[in-house]
Design a protein around this nucleic acid. Structure first.
Lengths: 251, 251
DNA sequence: ATTCCTAAATTGGCTTAGCCACTTGTCAAA
DNA sequence: TTTGACAAGTGGCTAAGCCAATTTAGGAAT
């Protein structure tokens, strides 16, 4: 089994590649099992088995009588669920809040780390957003974020006060594919400590992250500070419920 | 599709439950596709499709001509890979090292946090292990760990200097199913700072974790401090390669 | 009595062909 | 123009069969 993959395993890989190479947008109709059986010279049950595998990993969706479709919003919902501070505060029985400290448009040359992460030319316009997220009026998160402006030209303070995820997906029509995070510990500077309502030099969790659109195009770069007395990341190795990323939550 | 699960999806669930309810040990033979087809009154391709799903999630393994088996060591390998500092140091081109600071046997009453996490009666014997992990002779990790002694009675300083994972799995015959980690940031105390070779009060990553054996029995409780200038946790949200836990690595 | 070899049985891998339930689209009638 | 019916297309699943790989059992030889 490990030596040479069975035909159906190879077919799964081929379909996965096809799904990516053709840039099927969420909601688009994918190949039918009869089309796959013909095109890859295999039987329908084998085609269905390969499709079923992609359905169970969430990439596709069967609609009985209609066909097989590329999944849209479910993956997006999972992502929003993973990152939403509002949800996490509420889950902890606290009232979430947001203070917008700054929202500016600047050029990438003014923010070299973000420019690099976003692969932006030096004249490329970026939005710089600085916010504090609160739970029961207590600051928990100090967020600084650069966003590629051309993807969300209509950004303003009102949108900055709400869910960025909502704004990007519904107002800008973006499809966000994920984010790569690095989790570190830092001593809060006096300014950072002031923003978070803690003593200077207190240890905080720092998440440096880049977020991506479908197709791997970077959308945002963030350096976000979390009060560690109020927030932690939970990570499960092994276990019966299958692998998943570490998740932040209120302590 | 979402309203009522198809038969094959229900069958997957039934088989998953069967797999757990009967306590199939890794390596044991599971039901054949013909047995499943007969027992659940379905066709062989449908039985095979359900089994294939459990194979692709890693719970089972097909052996052509021999049958379907419960997976053993592959999950274990993944776990070791996830936690092995030795591997991570080497991957960063550094020479790993370990200093055993303390190895004692004590009763659970002497370590209330560990006793609680390990669900140990106050008279239950625990091992207390304190180590420093080094990369190129520089301290990176300060590890304090309590282990339920009855699972690894032969623990000694020689074993404590090497891979605990190896010792537990090969010498004690344990099957480790995973660990639950909480990732926080703390200011290093003078003793902790001294152990890690950093200035007191420097921000460090603190991982508080409980590790489990197959069946959910707790094996160890740890409070492990990481120098954040040398080590970070990487976490991927979304992305094309599927979900996985956050992973520590050298910076 | 033990060991080795061969044949039969068992198992996964996959096929063909078919039926049924569901959905969508088109055409005809009101 | 709208509604209903029918046809075509699609997933869900079946039965039966063949083939390759592995295991087991029985018989023969030492």
């Amino acid at each position: 089994m490990a030596k040479s993959a069975s035909f159906h395993e190879q077919l799964i890989e081929k379909l996965r590649k096809l799904l990516r190479s053709r840039q099927f947008v969420p909601g688009a109709k994918f190949l039918t099992e009869r089309e796959i059986a013909e095109r890859f010279d295999t039987s329908r049950p084998t085609a269905n088995k390969a499709l079923s595998s992609l359905v169970s990993t969430g990439l596709l969706e069967f609609r009985h009588g209609a066909g097989t479709f590329v999944r849209g919003s479910v993956l997006d919902y999972d992502l929003q669920h993973l990152v939403s501070f509002t949800e996490k505060a509420k889950a902890a029985g606290k009232k979430p809040g947001t203070q917008v400290i700054a929202l500016q448009k600047l050029s990438a040359a003014e923010a070299p780390a973000a420019a690099q992460a976003l692969k932006a030319a030096s004249s490329e316009p970026l939005f710089y957003l600085e916010r504090i997220r609160l739970a029961d009026a207590q600051p928990v998160i100090y967020e600084r974020r650069h966003v590629t402006a051309r993807f969300c030209a209509g950004m303003n303070k009102a949108y900055a006060k709400g869910s960025l995820y909502d704004f990007w997906t519904t107002k800008c029509g973006l499809t966000i594919s994920g984010a790569d995070e690095s989790i570190r510990a830092v001593n809060a500077s006096p300014a950072q400590a002031s923003a978070l309502g803690i003593k200077p030099n207190t240890a905080c969790l720092l998440v440096i992250a880049t977020g991506f659109l479908e197709g791997g195009v970077p959308l945002w770069y963030e350096e976000t500070l979390y009060r560690s007395d109020a927030y932690e990341f939970r990570n499960q190795l092994g276990g019966v419920s299958g692998p998943k990323p570490a998740q932040g939550r209120m302590r």
